[in-house]
């Protein structure tokens, strides 16, 4: 039964990918990673410049999996309660309260997009992190649950003024950090500019076949994937070595040009981070029609699940993206399996 279930769901997952690929072109890798995070039930940090299609991407996925989609913009004056409710004076002249973005879709909330999360204050981060971890919220003397919610947050990496960098403990709550970059292919770039179908986002998203997946079944099926995709002893040992290498890269001969490796890493990947990596790797193995995790599956998610968790010396924080990429590539090149 499980085999049939796995095959059936895989076909649906690949159909969803195909649908999203039609509306967001040239983003096969991010789309595969988002699909992975949806089935691994992990929250995602999106990294990319403005206008590269992050919102379109998330809306397309939301249409494909169903459920509610909510979005909020991070601003310096955003307060935690802005996520929960709005107050306003109604036409009757009396104050009114309406549900904020978190509560608006109720338990059906499937995608919550926090744009420019680093513009919001740490108090807002705290609330969001609790919701991410517990998928519940106390408000109006009641407990609200969001069992199917996945948070996507975008960081503005360019502007640093009036921003609050997400601390490493908060970054660790996200399963992945996925870079969204403009495609290099000239034909795709030309299509994005001149093809009018990409100009109207609403109409574009409407072309995605709705409800390819059932958002309220994802949690249950995620467990099926995790229990059916196995990891051999060799694979476990390999993952363990990767983990150790993130803590002490020099022990594995990993070096990054222009970096004092003795001072670089303050903290490697966390146990939570490694377990999330293995969850994502299992999903990747399933998407590739395998019954066990291979090193290739770990490689597919290694950068996106580990890079944002590494804690570097402050002196190297400005070059974080570049250094993390080189260091993790070096680790993959240095650690052997079997």
């Amino acid at each position: 039964m499980s085999d049939l279930q796995l095959t059936d769901w895989r076909n649906h997952a690949l159909a969803l990918e195909s649908e999203v690929n039609k509306v967001v072109v040239g983003q096969h890798t991010p789309i595969r990673l988002i699909t992975t995070s949806i089935f691994a039930r992990g929250h995602v940090l999106l990294e990319g410049d403005v206008g590269v299609g992050k919102t379109t991407l998330l809306r397309a996925f939301t249409r494909g999996i169903g459920g509610g989609y909510q979005r909020i913009e991070g601003t310096i004056d955003l307060m935690p309660n802005d996520l929960v409710y709005h107050t306003y004076l109604g036409e009757d002249g009396k104050p009114h309260v309406s549900a904020g973005p978190l509560l608006m879709s109720g338990e059906n909330l499937s995608v919550f997009f926090f744009n420019e999360i680093n513009r919001a204050r740490p108090q807002v981060h705290s609330l969001l992190l609790r919701v991410m971890a517990e998928r519940s919220l106390s408000a109006f003397n009641a407990e609200h649950y969001f069992p199917h919610m996945i948070v996507f947050a975008d960081r503005n990496q360019v502007e640093k003024e009036e921003t609050f960098e997400i601390p490493s403990a908060a970054r660790d709550r996200f399963m992945m950090e996925i870079p969204i970059v403009v495609p290099n292919d000239d034909a795709i770039m030309e299509a994005l500019v001149f093809d009018t179908k990409f100009h109207n986002v609403d109409a574009l998203v409407d072309t995605v076949k709705p409800d390819v997946l059932q958002f309220d079944e994802l949690n249950g099926f995620s467990g099926v994937i995790q229990s059916n995709i196995t990891a051999s002893d060799t694979l476990k040992k390999y993952a363990l070595n990767l983990w150790k290498a993130t803590k002490a890269p020099l022990d594995y001969g990993v070096k990054v040009s222009g970096v004092d490796m003795n001072r670089l890493v303050l903290a490697g990947a966390s146990p939570r981070g490694m377990s999330m990596m293995l969850r994502a790797a299992r999903v990747n193995a399933w998407l590739n029609n395998r019954t066990a995790v291979l090193p290739d599956d770990i490689h597919a998610v290694f950068h996106s699940t580990i890079a944002h968790r590494l804690v570097f010396s402050p002196v190297y924080e400005m070059r974080r993206t570049e250094i993390a990429r080189d260091m993790l590539s070096g680790i993959i090149n240095a650690v052997a399996a079997p």
């Binding site: 196995t230 051999s232 060799t234 694979l235 395998r290 019954t291 066990a292 995790v293 291979l294 079997p338």
Partner: peptide, 10 residues
């Protein structure tokens, strides 16, 4: 190698 070390069913 995949069959020997990682996925016996492969």
């Amino acid at each position: 190698s995949r069959q020997v070390y990682f996925e016996p069913n492969a």
